[in-house]
Write a protein that binds this DNA or RNA. Structure first.
Length: 291
DNA sequence: ACCGCACCCTGAGCGC
DNA sequence: TGCGCTCAGGGTGCGG
């Protein structure tokens, strides 16, 4: 689900609820794959701490808790970080929603998937981190500790330039799309925006990275910047689970040129958009416009 | 070093 | 209605 624009939108909208506030209490679900730091330890570490800042690194959110301590959050595929006052049908499964009376269907009460529930000082709303598939992550990083996940990240996709991409591609036989999905090359790019950027650049997703020219690398980076920046402007893509912290849907799903448009006409040439598996991921492209 | 793949988990949607 | 199957925006770790 969430790629750079959704994580950045989440950061901007959840920061006002967190930054400058002290954490009064923390509730969690049971220990699971989701908790890189065991929930009991997480509760002990977080309670009483003030959130000094909320930053983004690739698809990670990093809360600065002062004194060098940090909290690492990743939304995985279905993670939702939102205000307890948010209202959205995406916050409930269709079956769960159907069992509620109509007037309650948009309200949200924490459920078994709401793994982290923060109560902050003052009268503001609580902050919930919900994740149905548990591919998301939460981890405490103590002062002075380095973190392998953060250390692995390469240049943020918004900063990546054609020269750096070209250099990374030299001698590589994997698909150019796999290079874009590699977080050590372009931090923050995921499946949707990789397809969209390659369409704008006119490059086939399956082309061997080592055969992509310097000029094409420039075009790919320009395409990446364009789709990522535009998506941030519109609040990200809401395709199945993503909601902004206030419950709002993003707007970028309406501007997709290829992703999820299999069989529909290419917006440039009219040929049907094709779908195939590249880099083990569902991939969408126009065979005429992309070479 | 590089590459492909299995795996972590739950729910929606589809054909029968 | 229900069953079984496929698919999903991510990341890690393994073996070849």
């Amino acid at each position: 689900m969430p790629e750079l624009p959704e994580v950045e939108t989440t950061r901007r909208r959840i920061a006002p609820l967190l930054v400058g506030r002290r954490i009064e209490s923390v509730e969690t679900t049971r220990p699971s794959y989701f908790f890189l730091t065991p929930p009991e330890q997480l509760r002990r570490s977080l309670v009483g701490r003030r959130v000094e800042a909320l930053d983004r690194a690739g698809k990670y959110l990093v809360a600065d808790l002062g004194g060098g301590d940090r909290l690492l959050l990743h939304l995985g595929m279905t993670g939702q970080l939102f205000s307890s006052e948010a209202t959205s049908v995406r916050l409930l499964s269709a079956t769960a929603r159907a069992s509620l009376p109509p007037e309650a269907q948009h309200r949200f009460e924490p459920d078994e998937h709401t793994h982290l529930r923060l109560t902050l000082e003052g009268r503001g709303p609580r902050v919930f981190f919900r994740d149905v598939r548990k591919f998301g992550k939460v981890q405490w990083i103590a002062a002075g500790e380095d973190n392998a996940r953060l250390d692995r990240l390469g240049t943020d996709a918004l900063e990546l330039d054609g020269q750096a991409l070209f250099r990374a591609c030299r001698g590589r036989r994997v698909a150019i799309k796999a290079m874009l999905l590699d977080q050590s090359v372009a931090a923050g790019v995921g499946n949707i925006y990789a397809d969209e950027a390659l369409f704008l650049a006119g490059v086939r997703p399956g082309r061997a990275a080592g055969r992509v020219t310097r000029r094409e690398c420039d075009a790919i980076c320009a395409g990446l910047h364009r789709v990522l920046e535009r998506s941030i402007e519109t609040g990200g893509s809401s395709i199945s689970d993503y909601v902004a912290p206030d419950g709002a849907d993003g707007g970028y799903q309406d501007e997709r040129r290829v992703y999820g448009r299999k069989g529909e006409p290419c917006l440039v040439c009219g040929d049907p958009i094709r779908r195939r598996i590249v880099a083990q991921r569902s991939t969408h492209y126009c065979a005429r416009c992309q070479r």
